[in-house]
Nucleic acid binder design. Structure first.
Length: 376
RNA sequence: GGGGAGAUUCCAGAGCGGUCAAACGGGGUAGACUGUAAAUCUAUUGGCUAAGCCUUCGGAGGUUCGAAUCCUCCUCUCCCCA
């Protein structure tokens, strides 16, 4: 994998670049749709590629390991072939499940033991075996196993947690170097900065992570309950330290406004379930603002979903129709809303990239944040 | 024509003398959702001059300190047998 930094904004820390992987190029800043269980929920691969313009998607190690299982993925020849996606894939290590399935796991020095949310069976993830699993999945970018502590963790816990993540990282990197890809294309390994809401810890973690000289670096443990201001502050501290010539990935972020602010802080890659999950729950992100399509006010609004929207659904279907579908829990509603939201996200980062290259990012960003945050 | 069951707040359906503005669902309305245990979850759902008051349980009377709950008559629905 290669990263070319093309432009750096003068007023902010925003950057435009290219990531070149064996599955093609990614133009940064980029948003990566989340496809946890071998599918970006409610969206076809063809729509993802042709309509939405996704350049890379996510998968999740924990979920894929439980179902369909590594054996099936290996028989399929890897996740790309299994799902019919020939562009890059990034897999999360299962670190987030340490956080989201907190009540069903045990943390130890060796690794983390989960109780499957499907059948209750016990499984242990270690820094080493998640590398193996991600080798079998065949993701282009694989993530280190980390502990993602809650946003309101106290200093002592945050420090302990960060140190564990660092020890795990060392083991993970070693194992990554001692193993190789299984399907012919190369894989990159991203370490993850932790440190919760403490600047000192974040700094320390970023320095530690940078020391490994991996092909990209991630910022984790944010957007987990802390105020947005804290998230920006932490991101700001970290991007000052992480190498300029490697892509930075802010994990799990966020709202359109979060993404624009973080681009300004020097982040290149994002992922978030928000556009897809919220779509299924009736929330639409548009360039005019946020729409709760379930609200009565849209009942007889037969105007297009988003006249400025980049995807075919935006002009093809009306708000009233989409409202009907979502309220009736019709599957098509989830499909339309998901395509719309993802299309909007991808379009947003594409425009941000243009503005960075044109040198007009700062002004555009501030204006855009006000618009996209408004509630319609 | 004979016999039986029932009418409850938007729907459906509990309640069978006070703790009932009335359970549980559904529907309605609003909110949440950030490396997906989520096509999920939460709140609210008679009115008001709102820790109180007013009007509601088919209709009209009655019994009782007190009735959605008991009695009488009326209206209407449904089921079974002819």
């Amino acid at each position: 994998m290669e990263f070319n930094l093309l432009h750096s904004d003068k007023e902010t820390k925003a950057r435009a670049g290219n990531i070149i992987s064996d599955h093609g190029e990614i133009e940064t800043p980029i948003f990566m749709p989340v496809g946890t269980a071998a599918t970006v929920k409610a969206v076809h691969q063809r729509e993802l590629k042709d309509d939405i313009g996704a350049q890379i998607i996510l998968g999740n190690t924990y979920h894929l390991y439980l179902r369909p299982g590594i054996n099936i993925l290996e028989q399929a020849g890897g996740l790309h072939k299994f799902i019919g996606w020939d562009k890059p894939i990034l897999t999360d290590s299962g670190g987030y499940q340490v956080f989201s399935l907190a009540e069903m796991r045990k943390l130890k020095e060796e690794g983390v033991t989960f109780q499957s949310h499907i059948d209750g069976s016990k499984h242990t993830f270690t820094p080493e075996n998640v590398v193996d699993t991600q080798r079998s999945i065949g993701a282009d970018i694989i993530m280190a196993l980390d502990e993602c502590p809650p946003g309101d963790s106290d200093f002592r816990y945050a420090q302990k947690s960060m140190e564990l993540t660092h020890r795990w990282l060392k083991r993970g990197v070693d194992h990554f170097h001692n193993t190789g890809p299984k399907y012919g294309h190369s894989q990159s390994f991203f370490p993850i900065v932790q440190g919760s809401s403490f600047k000192d810890l974040r700094k320390q973690s970023a320095e530690f992570i940078a020391g490994f000289g991996m092909e990209g670096n991630a910022i984790g443990g944010l957007s987990v309950g802390e105020p947005a201001e804290v998230m920006y502050e932490m991101t700001d501290v970290v991007t000052d330290i992480l190498p300029q010539d490697k892509p930075r990935y802010l994990m799990g972020v966020g709202t359109p406004a979060n993404i624009l602010e973080s681009i300004a802080l020097g982040v290149d890659m994002f992922d978030c379930v928000m556009p897809t999950r919220n779509a299924r729950n009736g929330m639409l992100f548009t360039s005019e603002g946020i729409i709760n399509i379930k609200n009565k006010k849209w009942e007889n609004d037969f105007s297009p979903i988003d006249t400025q929207g980049p995807t075919f659904v935006d002009s093809f279907y009306s708000k009233a129709y989409l409202r009907h579908l979502i309220i009736s829990k019709e599957i098509l509603g989830a499909q339309i809303a998901s395509i719309h939201n993802l299309g909007f996200y991808l379009c947003l980062v594409k425009e941000a990239r243009k503005q960075i290259i044109a040198g007009t990012f700062s002004k555009w960003k501030n204006n855009m944040i006000t618009k996209v945050s408004e509630r319609l």
